[in-house]
Simulated assay, not measured.
Amino acid sequence: MTNVEFNEKINELWTRTKAGNLPRDARFKAIEALTDQYVEATGKRPDSGALDRLATLCLYEEVTDDDRMKIRNNEAPIMSDRQIERREADQVSFTMAEEVGTDGRDYRSQTRQNRKKLRKY
Score class of each variant (00 low, 15 high):
L54M: 15
P23C: 03
V39G: 09
S48W: 04
N21P: 02
K18P: 00
T17V: 13
S48P: 01
K29Y: 04
C58I: 12
E40D: 10
G49H: 06
N21A: 08
F28H: 10
F28T: 10
K29S: 12
T17C: 11
T17P: 03
F28Q: 13
P46L: 08
P46Y: 04
R27M: 01
A41H: 08
Q37H: 09
K44F: 14
R45D: 03
F28G: 05
L57Q: 10
D47S: 11
R27F: 06
G43C: 11
C58Y: 05
Q37V: 09
T35K: 07
E40L: 13
D36Q: 14
E32I: 05
C58K: 15
L34D: 07
T56Q: 15
N21I: 02
R27K: 06
A30R: 03
F28L: 15
T42N: 15
V39Y: 06
P23G: 10
A33G: 14
K18W: 04
I31H: 09
D25L: 13
V39Q: 13
R27A: 13
L57N: 09
D52P: 01
T35R: 10
G43D: 11
P46Q: 04
T42Q: 15
L51Y: 01
E32L: 05
K18D: 03
G49K: 09
Y38H: 09
K29H: 08
D25E: 14
A30G: 01
A19Q: 08
A55C: 07
A55Y: 08
K18I: 01
D52G: 11
T35G: 01
K18G: 01
R27E: 00
T56C: 12
T42M: 14
A33M: 07
A50K: 01
L54P: 07
D52S: 13
